Amino acid sequence: MTEYKLVVVGAGGVGKSALTIQLIQNHFVDEYDPTIEDSYRKQVVIDGETCLLDILDTAGQEEYSAMRDQYMRTGEGFLCVFAINNTKSFEDIHHYREQIKRVKDSEDVPMVLVGNKCDLPSRTVDTKQAQDLARSYGIPFIETSAKTRQGVDDAFYTLVREIRKHKEKMSKDGKKKKKKSKTKCVIM
């Protein structure tokens, strides 16, 4: 069974824990209790493949930012979460993405942009803004509501699919490099 290491990042209060708990335990946590770091595991079937999701729910508070490099190193894919009623959390996505790329030393890291709290009427981040940002990053965008469960499975499952595509691409690139290195030079 394939294991996928997913990391949920975003500013404090955007609903990272609520999304994760909704996926794992099928219930909505409405009281806000700032996370330092929590880890969850769940076995699911995605596109006919049974897999184990190892999900790291991270601290959004700035005082825990020193811990970010460590979990970013171990993560295979990242859910970059903002709240649709919090423009600052949307603007912060850029910083999370840049930090992930720096730590992973790669421009090509599996990510999904997630606009959470889409059940709320007080939207300050337009869907088109988020779609445009995701398009500019070359990553999928999904709106979710941890409260109603809308888009929750889709967000995590899409990230797994992005990781699969990335692994497939990397193995193809690896095979191309191996083929090239088999060419021999004969000096007579």
Rank of each mutant, 00 (worst) to 15 (best):
residue 51 C to V: 11
residue 168 E to Y: 05
residue 86 N to M: 01
residue 142 I to A: 01
residue 6 L to V: 08
residue 119 D to M: 01
residue 14 V to S: 12
residue 30 D to L: 04
residue 19 L to S: 12
residue 46 I to Y: 04
residue 122 S to W: 06
residue 62 E to K: 05
residue 46 I to W: 03
residue 5 K to D: 04
residue 57 D to W: 09
residue 17 S to A: 01
residue 68 R to H: 09
residue 8 V to K: 00
residue 117 K to W: 15
residue 163 I to S: 01
residue 119 D to V: 01
residue 31 E to M: 06
residue 53 L to H: 06
residue 180 K to R: 10
residue 24 I to W: 07
residue 64 Y to R: 12
residue 44 V to K: 12
residue 9 V to Y: 04
residue 130 A to Q: 03
residue 33 D to M: 08
residue 80 C to Q: 01
residue 63 E to H: 06
residue 36 I to H: 10
residue 108 D to R: 04
residue 143 E to G: 02
residue 59 A to I: 05
residue 91 E to H: 12
residue 163 I to K: 09
residue 54 D to V: 03
residue 134 A to M: 03
residue 98 E to V: 01
residue 11 A to L: 13
residue 42 K to R: 07
residue 31 E to K: 10
residue 28 F to K: 06
residue 126 D to C: 09
residue 77 G to I: 10
residue 122 S to N: 09
residue 48 G to T: 05
residue 20 T to R: 11
residue 112 V to Q: 00
residue 121 P to R: 10
residue 123 R to C: 14
residue 178 K to V: 08
residue 18 A to H: 04
residue 164 R to H: 07
residue 36 I to L: 09
residue 75 G to Y: 13
residue 114 V to K: 00
residue 185 C to G: 15
residue 173 D to K: 02
residue 106 S to H: 06
residue 67 M to W: 03
residue 101 K to F: 11
residue 20 T to E: 12
residue 129 Q to T: 09
residue 36 I to Q: 13
residue 139 I to L: 02
residue 9 V to K: 02
residue 90 F to C: 05
residue 52 L to K: 12
residue 55 I to G: 08
residue 12 G to V: 06
residue 53 L to E: 04
residue 120 L to Q: 12
residue 75 G to C: 15
residue 154 D to H: 12
residue 160 V to D: 02
residue 146 A to L: 07
residue 76 E to M: 14
residue 131 Q to W: 05
residue 61 Q to V: 10
residue 78 F to N: 00
residue 167 K to S: 06
residue 30 D to A: 09
residue 66 A to M: 06
residue 181 S to Y: 01
residue 17 S to T: 10
residue 30 D to Q: 11
residue 32 Y to D: 14
residue 120 L to K: 04
residue 113 L to E: 00
residue 84 I to P: 15
residue 13 G to N: 07
residue 21 I to W: 14
residue 179 K to R: 14
residue 177 K to I: 10
residue 68 R to L: 05
residue 14 V to Q: 07
residue 187 I to T: 15
residue 20 T to P: 15
residue 66 A to K: 06
residue 16 K to N: 03
residue 55 I to D: 09
residue 151 G to T: 13
residue 181 S to A: 13
residue 143 E to R: 12
residue 60 G to V: 06
residue 5 K to I: 01
residue 21 I to R: 15
residue 107 E to H: 12
residue 143 E to F: 02
residue 50 T to P: 10
residue 166 H to A: 05
residue 184 K to V: 00
residue 36 I to K: 14
residue 100 I to G: 01
residue 13 G to T: 09
residue 104 K to N: 06
residue 162 E to R: 03
residue 103 V to M: 09
residue 150 Q to P: 03
residue 101 K to P: 03
residue 25 Q to N: 05
residue 179 K to L: 14
residue 91 E to P: 04
residue 4 Y to F: 12
residue 71 Y to C: 06
residue 163 I to D: 03
residue 22 Q to T: 03
residue 110 P to H: 03
residue 136 S to G: 09
residue 133 L to C: 08
residue 86 N to I: 03
residue 182 K to L: 05
residue 139 I to M: 14
residue 67 M to V: 09
residue 184 K to A: 14
